[in-house]
């Protein structure tokens, strides 16, 4: 192992609690298995062979919101679906994060009309917005890495 060879036989690492917690949170952030529209297909692509999200500790999609840390709102959010997404978000256990994937989820996109909620941030808090219609898997990966950076800088006191 890389770490132990640097440490010798001491087996001790000094760090802060925050860093350790954030490291654990970043290392295994489990997304909710949830897709809305076109972006969900690109989300599937980024989990499949060519892009392989499991490199970032995200290979496990949880089908239940109780076990998920990350909600990727992938696609257009309609007025009929909005209460459902809000309920899913409420059911997720803290700490939880939200990525708004694609233009439709971020701001309504090309659908500026009666049926679409103009941005998912009207109903739930969003941490990272990913632009694109639909975003390429690389863009989603970049969004996830941006979220990781954000989580690494979080302070436990803020969660209390």
């Amino acid at each position: 192992m890389g770490v132990s060879s640097k440490l010798g036989n001491l087996g001790i690492v000094t760090t802060t609690v925050e860093q350790a917690v954030n490291h654990a949170r970043v290392g295994a952030m489990w997304p909710l298995l949830f897709g809305l529209a076109c972006c969900a297909i690109e989300y599937m692509s980024s989990q499949a062979s060519s892009y392989d999200l499991s490199r970032f500790g995200m290979e496990l999609n949880r089908a239940t919101p109780r076990q998920a840390d990350l909600l990727i709102v992938s696609g257009r959010l309609t007025r009929k679906m909005a209460p459902v997404v809000r309920q899913l978000y409420d059911q997720m256990a803290e700490p939880k994060w939200v990525i708004s994937m694609g233009d439709c989820a971020s701001c309504g996109g090309v659908y500026n009309n009666y049926a679409i909620v103009q941005g998912v941030d009207e109903i739930i808090p969003v941490d990272v917005y990913v632009a694109g219609c639909p975003p390429r898997p690389e863009q989603l990966l970049h969004g996830i890495l941006t979220l990781h950076e954000k989580v690494k800088g979080e302070r436990i006191a803020d969660w209390a």
Partner: peptide
């Protein structure tokens, strides 16, 4: 749940 109003747009 995914009615987007495309026809109206």
């Amino acid at each position: 749940f995914l009615h987007t109003g495309i026809e109206k747009s």
